[in-house]
């Protein structure tokens, strides 16, 4: 069957396309950031699945895969919708996990998750750490991005299980072990989400203010603003 050749674009449209064609290139910083984000996610064992035929299923799968694995830290964005909105009621993790059923489990991470030395003392009420008490000296620096990723991934997984105490303990451990954190930006966001999950809105807002002051153009800013810290934390004096 002979196909009808579509009418070609006119000269004006063609010239617009030709002029714009090279105008969508990424810069090197974006390239590096995305690469880092992909590597971090792969190190954490996250690989998204998108069905070839179903776009809607694809949405669920992509979201559910990330959430199920634990919304592990990324360089670009956190996907932890439980804390996305301050208006959204807390839901059990299984609510999202239900949608994850058709998703093939991500391959296990090929990293050694360190056994963090976690203080057993529960933190029932977490106010922001006062500067008067200097943190204990690092027991052992987190030696690699993999380990940082593993710790933050474990903290996010604890958050996804609504195990806030565990998440905060892991974050404390991260702070003690990470001499100079590669993922400090991501750690800050996890901390804010943990404060939200613990119901400590004021502390979350205070951390959000510090976050925005330190990283005013952070791609994670939207995640912070989408948490209970919201815009108030950013705009408060």
């Amino acid at each position: 069957m002979k196909m009808l050749e579509p009418p070609d674009l006119d000269a004006d449209a063609r010239s617009v396309i030709d002029a714009a064609r090279s105008g969508y290139e990424p810069n090197e910083m974006a390239r590096a950031r995305v690469r880092r984000g992909v590597e971090v996610k792969l190190a954490a064992g996250i690989a998204l699945a998108v069905g070839p035929a179903s776009a809607v299923a694809g949405v669920l799968k992509v979201t559910a895969a990330v959430v199920t694995v634990g919304a592990v830290v990324t360089a670009g964005v956190y996907v932890a919708p439980r804390y996305l909105s301050k208006h959204a009621p807390a839901r059990p993790a299984t609510h999202v996990a239900m949608h994850a059923a058709p998703v093939a489990p991500a391959p296990p991470p090929e990293i050694d998750i360190p056994a963090p030395a976690i203080a057993p003392a529960p933190r029932a009420h977490v106010k922001h750490r006062a500067p008067v008490a200097a943190p204990p000296p690092p027991v052992e620096n987190v030696s690699s991005l993999k380990e940082e990723t593993a710790l933050l991934g474990a903290a996010n997984a604890a958050l996804a299980r609504s195990d806030v105490k565990r998440a905060l303990a892991l974050l404390d451990d991260y702070d003690h072990r990470a001499g100079s954190s590669v993922l400090s930006e991501e750690r800050a966001v996890t901390g804010i989400l943990a404060q939200c999950a613990a119901g400590h809105v004021d502390a979350a807002r205070a951390e959000a203010r510090r976050f925005h002051a330190r990283w005013p153009r952070s791609p994670l800013g939207a995640r912070v603003d989408g948490s209970c810290a919201g815009g108030d934390g950013r705009n408060a004096p």
């Binding site: 990424p26 974006a30 984000g37 992909v38 998204l48 998108v50 992509v62 990324t74 670009g76 791609p219």
Partner: peptide
């Protein structure tokens, strides 16, 4: 950037 990350994660997965 998030979308580009997702593309390459899907590439890896698939």
């Amino acid at each position: 950037e998030d979308a580009a990350q997702d593309v390459f994660l899907v590439v890896h997965r698939r």
